[in-house]
């Protein structure tokens, strides 16, 4: 039996703020199956973004156990973690985080910089842009695109290495409702077509309702989990 996309056991993330310790994540234990579309919801400060950082191997300061596709993150060195982020995980951020000095094509191709083996990054980038319908804007700068287009470019960048897992932090948070709906539809399509695991951190109820599973966090704990056994 294949291991789940993510397995969390008693996950804690404590921040030391002066003399006080604040638990951003406080004993989370859950599995996220492969190919599932999961929405993580909760109020500001509930621990959503912290959870995404831990799942994305960006934050190693946690306690407990986190497995990604059966690999214990604590046992991986920086190089292995980098390889994991490069080929297995795709990130989409609320603020897009496109690099303004690069063209759309170069932005989408940028994961190739950190790939172990060289490949035709431009070709792969064009393919990824085609998937999000922005092939014709390849040579534009991100600042000349609309918000929705920028988020689609960010999605194309996340898709460059065809990762099995997409991690999205408020992907519609900076978009109006129409373009937000477009992005939600795109995420659904990416999930369905390739059986990707998509985890979306969101405030937006409309997006959360489209997910197969809804995990609500409060004060770093699971308040509600629609997929709980």
């Amino acid at each position: 039996m294949n291991p789940p996309a993510f397995r969390l056991q008693d996950l804690r993330r404590i921040y030391q703020e002066g003399d006080t310790r604040r638990a951003a994540l406080d004993g989370l234990s859950l599995d996220i199956e492969r190919g599932s579309f999961v929405a993580v919801v909760g109020a500001s400060g509930s621990g959503k973004s912290t959870l995404l950082a831990v799942l994305g191997a960006l934050d190693r300061g946690y306690e407990g156990r986190v497995e990604v596709l059966g690999q214990d993150l604590a046992r991986l060195d920086e190089r292995a973690l980098g390889r994991l982020r490069n080929a297995t995980l795709g990130f989409v951020f609320q603020s897009f985080h496109l690099l303004p000095h690069l063209t759309v094509l170069d932005n989408v191709a940028s994961p190739a910089l950190f790939a172990d083996e060289p490949f035709d990054a431009a070709q792969a980038a064009l393919l990824a842009l085609r998937q999000v319908g922005l092939e014709d804007r390849a040579l534009d700068r991100p600042q000349h695109l609309s918000g929705g287009q920028r988020q689609r470019v960010a999605l194309a960048r996340a898709l460059l290495r065809s990762p099995p897992i997409l991690l999205c932090d408020e992907p519609t948070g900076n978009l109006d409702s129409r373009t937000g709906a477009e992005v939600i539809a795109l995420l659904e399509r990416l999930h369905q077509e390739h059986q990707r695991t998509v985890i979306v951190v969101t405030h937006e109820e409309r997006l959360a309702q489209r997910a197969q599973r809804r995990i609500a966090l409060e004060d770093g704990r699971v308040k509600e989990d629609s997929g709980a056994a």
Binding site: G56, L58, E78, R79, L81, G82, R83, R85, N86, A87, F91, H97, L99, S110, P111, L113, F114, A115, R157
Partner: peptide
């Protein structure tokens, strides 16, 4: 900062 963060998210190690 953000650019470095993006590169880290795309697979760069601290050494890179």
């Amino acid at each position: 900062r953000v650019e470095i963060g993006v590169y880290r998210s795309l697979g760069a190690t601290p050494g890179d």
